[in-house]
Design a protein around this nucleic acid. Sequence first.
DNA 1: GCGTGAATCCCATTTTCATGCTATTGCCGA
DNA 2: TCGGCAATAGCATGAAAATGGGATTCACGC
Lengths: 226, 226
Amino acid sequence: MAIRVAIVEDDRGIREGLSILVGGSPGFTCTAAYANAESALIGLPKNPPDVVLMDIQLPGMDGITCVAQASVLCPNTMFLMSTSFDNDEEVFNALRAGANGYVLKNTPPVKLLQAIAELHGGGSPMSASIARKVIGSLRPAQATPSASELSSRELEILEALSKGMRYQEVADTLFISVDTVRSHVRAMYGKLQVHSRTDAVNKVFPRVILRSLPIVDTPRRSIRRK
Amino acid sequence: MAIRVAIVEDDRGIREGLSILVGGSPGFTCTAAYANAESALIGLPKNPPDVVLMDIQLPGMDGITCVAQASVLCPNTMFLMSTSFDNDEEVFNALRAGANGYVLKNTPPVKLLQAIAELHGGGSPMSASIARKVIGSLRPAQATPSASELSSRELEILEALSKGMRYQEVADTLFISVDTVRSHVRAMYGKLQVHSRTDAVNKVFPRVILRSLPIVDTPRRSIRRK
DNA sequence: GCGTGAATCCCATTTTCATGCTATTGCCGA
DNA sequence: TCGGCAATAGCATGAAAATGGGATTCACGC
């Protein structure tokens, strides 16, 4: 069965060209072509294609935001980003938003179809520099500077705390008394200069929050009593 | 300047072959060749190469564990994994442990040197299926099923709580009363079936902890009172 | 041998959290 | 228009957590 492809591209000429290319190639079908992100978000869920070829630069809502939302609405659809420039940061953000690969706009037709096929086949076409960035992002929680200040026992306890365990539970699993847990926690808080479990955990095990939609930044908390 | 390459490979024939290949190719230098992970861990830090070609299957400590530790000791060194089989899971773990790319053992010499060069140049040679896996791991915190159960206001509050804010602080930043925060929290806990801030946060914003070293799994907490 | 720090433990106090019950307002869909 | 739900708020209680002040043991380095 042919790979069902939808296109999101604001430039009419390119859009129609792609539409014809995809529609006219054996093994591919063009199910829809949208001129902007907004209409794509409305149309895509009604008839989810296998692959969406999405321009990043779009009037109004950009392609990255569009993917972020569309990937939720169409969980089985793959998104192939299309960019004019090989902008690492931008493409990287797109990948985090839910895209599965990307191609440059000047990619020759044959290569483009290959990329679509690769995407549909389970691959993720992208450039070497993007690949490196992506891989690098896999190991962030590794050497947190603040973690080195803690003893291994303390880390062990913090690890438990990060899972939501109460002091008594931590004590039970580590075969020590609750008071010992308290002591360690106190020592940790002192070293880390924090005053709560959540703060400690966030400081030592930075949360890799990969949100698709921008979230308003909440102002930082103030110092507490004293 | 030539790319300095070290080799970790238990098979003597392959090891010597690689050593000769790398040492005899212009632009490459072979700085060392180790027969096992243990000796590599001792030798590598003394003379950190640019790239380490590391076999995954090794007697004793495996190549993944070795990379996990060596990458900490030699932060500027790139690790290229070498596998006999295209085992996604295994290679993926290696990447999480700190490897930057991988090649199959039957890779022809020219391709191998290309991969080393690509790695050294900032790329990350890997197969399509690995790339896909890697990209997929980028967006876990996205469509958490439990998050959809919460109202936007509740999410907003939980977001604040995840940063370590106390109820009073949340109330102040959102311009509502502490009791209202309490109410929302109660409603959330009910929906999420949890009984603490940490549990709620973990459930809605799953922490992407990518450790290089395996950590003992702590048993799950029990139900609380009642 | 002595200081130091990690790990263990105990007791006590204050703060913050979790939870239960209740209640008002405003919006939206049946 | 009525019922339900989200958002707001108050009051109260008991459970955890945070903090403070000790104390002991043990390994390690100087």
